[in-house]
């Protein structure tokens, strides 16, 4: 029964990881950009939510109304002002610039918020749970998982059924020809990053409600998201959700075997899948 419980908890945790991954997956799909600062932006969102929630006395869930558009705006500006200048055939500039950004965000958070762990307090809902057969599930993890499914479904729909998604796919295929259709590449990339950081904001707030966080935890979140993307297969959003779930289950089952084994178990499963299925379980993109 304990094992079943571990698998259930891991599955729900996987939803959070899929949210870390969805934004990464989107910007890689549209502009082949890998943002090393992605995890730090997740943590930045959690801190912004903390400031909004404490400052205005709001529930962190309501703080999303401010943090999501704010992060989207930051994403658009970041892309237009900084990252677009690094886009090209050479992978070094975007990598090193986002790496520098990661260090800047981490240290800025340290300066403003100190290294003390913080948590977003969502009230009674945090501890509420419902029985599910012989198991109990927390309401909060279920909400997070449902949100992840919702976000991925929405992104999928946006990508394949809206004008914006069409513009993303066209730009991803042939940047120059998309430009001939009147699509300004710089703007399209800005929109992709805005959506990425909107999802990131959601992920950050849920992270902050589930566990405590400090300025240094961003790197690990980037790695979890990245592992979910690679396990699921590049370019497949539903695959990313599956990747997140596999990673989450590996971690909770690993923790069950030995508490010090939790994160390591996730990494090992990732490396095993990389060894056996280098293109992930459900690849769609070359």
């Amino acid at each position: 029964m304990d094992w079943l419980n571990a698998i259930l908890q891991g599955t729900l945790l996987g939803g959070l990881y899929a949210m870390f991954a969805a934004g990464l997956s989107l910007i890689f799909g549209v502009m082949r950009l890998v943002n090393i600062a992605h995890g730090d932006l997740i943590v930045l969102s959690a801190y912004l939510a903390l400031t909004v929630a404490v400052g205005l006395g709001l529930n962190p869930m309501l703080a999303l109304v401010i943090v999501v558009p704010l992060m989207a705006a930051i994403g658009y500006a970041l892309q237009r002002l900084v990252l677009n200048r690094t886009m090209g055939d050479d992978i070094l500039p975007p990598l090193l610039v986002t790496f520098g950004l990661s260090v800047i965000i981490q240290n800025a958070l340290l300066t403003v918020y100190t290294a003390d762990p913080q948590k977003l307090n969502a009230g009674a809902i945090e501890t509420a749970s419902v029985p599910l057969g012989p198991l109990t599930v927390g309401i909060m993890p279920v909400i997070v998982f449902a949100a992840a499914v919702g976000v991925i479904g929405l992104l999928q729909w946006m990508f394949y059924h809206t004008a914006l998604g069409r513009a993303f796919r066209a730009t991803s295929d042939r940047q120059d020809i998309a430009q001939l259709m009147g699509l300004n590449r710089a703007h399209v990339f800005g929109l992709a990053m805005a959506i990425c950081l909107a999802v990131t904001a959601l992920a950050g707030v849920f992270l902050g409600m589930r566990t405590s966080f400090d300025p240094a935890v961003g790197g690990t979140r980037l790695i979890f998201g990245f592992e979910a993307v690679i396990i699921g297969g590049l370019g497949n959003l539903w695959g990313t959700l599956a990747g997140g779930v596999i990673l989450g289950v590996a971690q909770t089952v690993g923790a069950k075997i030995h508490p010090g084994f939790q994160i390591l178990a996730g990494h090992i499963v990732f490396l095993l899948i990389l060894a056996v299925r280098p293109r992930g379980l459900f690849p769609r993109m070359d």
Binding site: P93, V97, G100
Partner: peptide
């Protein structure tokens, strides 16, 4: 970090 970004750009 800022100097590195500026130099890279």
């Amino acid at each position: 970090g800022a100097v590195a970004i500026i130099i890279m750009l």
